[in-house]
Design a binder for these strands. Structure first.
Length: 420
RNA sequence: GUGGGUGUAGCUCAAAUGGUUAGAGUGCCGGGUUGUGGCCCCGGAGGCUGAGGGUUCAAGUCCCUUCACUCACCCCA
């Protein structure tokens, strides 16, 4: 029979890794909670229209990376490629702005993009996503960035670098964009084919092209930071100032342009040298017109997403987790098996993690298995012990054994294990 | 969608110029101890060499096709 495998670019999270995932997620909940963000759980499927309107019709994500299908009633549905759109939809749908001017939300879960997989990039991947609505002050940019850095540091990852930029707003960005196109027009033929195409689709993308000749040309191009309008310039200056006040180290990357259409003003990325080509493990920015354009009130927003797989890859010792087991019950003989089966399940009901072997193997085999399961104690029950109304409890770490009376055995063992 | 790399045991990898029955380590199972784990020793199971075709007396090895994985481009977390 041919084996059925996972879909390309989609991976299992194995038992040895699941505890680390849980750990990352619980740190996120704890950190975000202390910044007064609240968890929301949104569906992984939405109407296709939502993503088209938020992310942008002409972005790569919408044009060629979405998992879209026609439902039985002909409605077009899409597996979410990111979470921001869903959160905004929920924010609008449930009129959250009417409860408080400021709404702070986070969510986490799988996202889907049909890309060619590579290191740090998958077709199903997981993000932790944070959004803050209703405040356009630079402090909210900094609150979100500070929280992100604090979260990442709390997971003990190292070699982080924060880069920030300002992308301007709807008044100053088009001016800049046009200036870049004007500058490049003369040397268009010297650009790589990709960049020639970008000149009409997304000229700002040329800034992070990796082809050397493009780099030389773009190096002397106008810089967004010189084109910011007075308001954007002031906003960016304050963001930098507050970051410095909070001792958040950052670099300014005037060439950082983010791929989703909706970003305005502050954009930021956290990179790690441990990741390979896909070196951004978190990214985000401000999106001041987006909520309104999705049918909501005129509120600004800012948020970020952390790639959990990428964060996981940066963790210092992501060694395999071996679960400890409290108790293994080794039984020898028919009467002992029967009694051990009952006792095993009684121990489990008392919250003691307990395992036993149902096949009638040698004591040596059962001990080996107990060892492999990283057991603290092994209880040995044979028919002999039943006759003598006493059992032996072995401490696997100290290699010492004690004899326990059969009556009230359950409570005796619980007491010993809890006192350990 | 485009390019490069790699496919041999559960896992990590060997097998000179094509040449007999494809090996090792590790893991797994069992034994050494008739009822005691890790260390040590011994034994065992486990492979259509990714798949299909071709060249040859002979293919894991050479050629073609295809698939999978992987890295990179594009793009993004």
């Amino acid at each position: 029979m041919e084996k059925i495998t996972t879909i390309k670019g989609i991976k299992d999270i194995l038992p040895e890794d699941a505890p680390t995932w849980n750990h990352i997620e619980s740190i996120a909940r704890q950190v975000f909670g202390s910044f007064c963000f609240r968890e929301i759980r949104v569906p992984i499927m939405e109407k296709t229209e939502l993503f088209k309107r938020s992310i942008g019709e002409t972005t790569d994500i919408v044009e060629k990376e979405m998992y879209t299908f026609r439902d039985r009633d002909d409605e077009l549905l899409t597996l979410r490629p990111e979470a921001t759109a869903s959160i905004i939809r929920a924010y609008i749908e449930h009129n959250m702005h009417s409860f408080d001017q400021i709404t702070k939300l986070y969510t986490m879960g799988p996202m889907f993009r049909r890309e060619r997989p590579q290191k740090g990039r998958f077709r199903q991947f997981h993000q932790i996503d944070v959004e803050l609505f209703g405040d356009e002050k630079p402090q909210s940019d900094v609150e979100v960035i500070f929280m992100l850095m604090h979260f990442l540091q709390s997971t003990a990852i190292e070699e982080l670098s924060l880069e920030i930029n300002s992308l301007g707003c709807k008044t100053c960005r088009p001016v800049f964009s046009q200036a870049v196109v004007n500058y490049l027009r003369g040397s268009k033929n010297a650009l790589c084919p990709d960049c020639q195409r970008r000149m009409s689709t997304n000229p700002l993308r040329i800034f992070d092209c990796k082809v050397e000749t493009c780099n030389l040309i773009i190096a002397k191009a106008p810089q967004i930071l010189d084109y910011l309008c007075p308001d954007c310039k002031e906003h960016f200056a304050q963001v930098k100032s507050y970051l410095t006040d909070l001792n958040v180290a950052y670099g300014i990357n005037p060439k950082m342009v983010r791929g989703l259409d909706y970003y305005t003003r502050t954009a930021f990325e956290v990179k790690s040298g441990l990741l390979g080509a896909q070196n951004a493990l978190a990214g985000g920015g401000r999106y001041d017109g987006l909520v309104h354009s999705l049918g909501g009130p005129e509120v600004s927003g800012i948020g970020f997403a952390v790639g959990i797989e990428r964060l996981f890859a940066c963790l210092p010792n992501n060694k395999k987790n071996i679960f400890p087991t409290d108790l293994f019950i080794a039984a020898l003989g028919e009467r002992a098996q029967k009694m051990a089966f009952g006792l095993t399940n009684e121990m489990r009901r008392a919250g003691i993690s307990t395992e036993k072997d149902y096949s009638d193997k040698s004591l040596k085999s059962q001990m080996k298995r107990a060892d492999k399961l990283n057991t603290s104690f092994t209880l040995i029950i044979g028919d002999k012990e039943i006759d003598e109304k006493r059992v032996e409890l072995r401490n696997m770490n100290t290699k010492t054994q004690q004899v326990l009376p059969m009556n009230n055995l359950r409570d005796t063992i619980i007491k010993i294990i809890k006192e350990r």
